[in-house]
Nucleic acid binder design. Sequence first.
RNA 1: GUGGGUGUAGCUCAGUUGGUUAGAGCGCCUGGUUGUGGCCCAGGAGGUCGGGGGUUCAAAUCCCCUCACUCACCCCA
Length: 423
Amino acid sequence: MPEQIIKVKGTRDFYPEDWAYQRWLSGKLLEVGRLFGYEEYEGPILEPIELYLEKTSEEIVGQQTFTLTDRDGKSLVMRPELTPTLARMVAAKEGQLEFPVRWQSYGRFFRYERPQRGRGRAFFQWNLDLLGLESALADAEVIHVACEVFKALDLSPDLVEIRLNDRQGLESFIVDEIGIPPARIGDVLGLIDRRDKMGSQKFVAALTDSGLPSSQSGELDDALTRHQRIVSPWLDQMMGHLADRGVEDFIKLDLTIVRGFDYYTSTVFEAWAKTDLRRALFGGGRYDNLTRQVGGKREIPGIGFALGDMAIAELLKEVDRMPAESGPPTRLFVSVFSDDLLTASSALAVKSRTAGIPTELGTNPGQRLDRQFKYADRKGIPFVAVIGPDEVEKDVVTLKNLRDGSQQTLPTSALVDALKRQD
RNA sequence: GUGGGUGUAGCUCAGUUGGUUAGAGCGCCUGGUUGUGGCCCAGGAGGUCGGGGGUUCAAAUCCCCUCACUCACCCCA
């Protein structure tokens, strides 16, 4: 026997019940976006490596992506995120698009990482972006969408929160209040980002190690501990808009939210579960120079976020918000009494399908009826039709409801109506 | 990339200080019921104990290697 072929590490097989969950989740997300007027779009799954080298460090692209070489020797990347693709698509049509652009997308992404709880190498991600607006109204809208997603998934503010910060405000706080030289901002932001994980002591030590006077390290740590937020008119505006929309309960200002790299220019936010799950559910922010880096003629400001399917699934499982399994769509199983009567059963199935009722015709003529019933029952098919010699003679059909065990014999012509009544 | 854990029947798992023919529950198959699923009863099939090597009279059990899965760290665009 040939060796069993195992699936690629970090990928998942979606059996019907798993796929039903994916359909449910993507349906919920896309519907929320649709209610805010966001149009769906999609890009290629393969992109030239240069698209990512522009924006991200070579190390990350080299080590954390699936890359391949095509037959012409060109390096291609299985897309690890959508934003560069979005930038490319917007830049290519920037003269023709009507701004502001509201776009959303749900698709597959790939990252070459070590799989663990809530993270694999192939995953789905929902991206939602609002492009072409500079005002805080745009940021508030996108965060409002995020809050509505929580509502749609039945996740209340006691389970989840969105931690919000203004990177520009944080930077000026660090420079003006603490007195850290502007040149050091990059390092310091990176450490602030990780402060939650390493704890206060290590944080101070790391700051000092990086060359900061220990008085400043301590002062910054104190300030981060003491202050819930920074002085930021930008955040004040956003919070005002969010309160108008009635979603402020989901929002927590948190000046330690940074999100790695220089990608974001002001607003940054991350969603976190307030449970044991120590993982960001999604994150996003404002990027004001999106299209330039991919050859666009002008800078188009934008704000958006991305939500992966795996972390949110972990949370939904943990708080019991997964939808119930629904089984196959089949409503009616038409049993086949014998070879002779296959024609009659077949005709009935055709009639039922024509009426729009998902119908399965027995494929084992003459199989004992109890087997056929058992099969339908296990499949979760709610109705079974029987056409035996008695029924054929009188042009009737026996219809059994497997849910409650009731059974009736009715004219063949009345079957469809009877089924529709019982929906 | 670093470290831990786990691999025994289709599934979830037991398996004592190494000891005879490797077990249970669920599932599956057959029959009890040749026009009726679930419940019940009786019987049955199914395992090179992840793979390879070693120690031993004897290995699921001990040792080494390897593969897979999993959890955490690093990272998280």
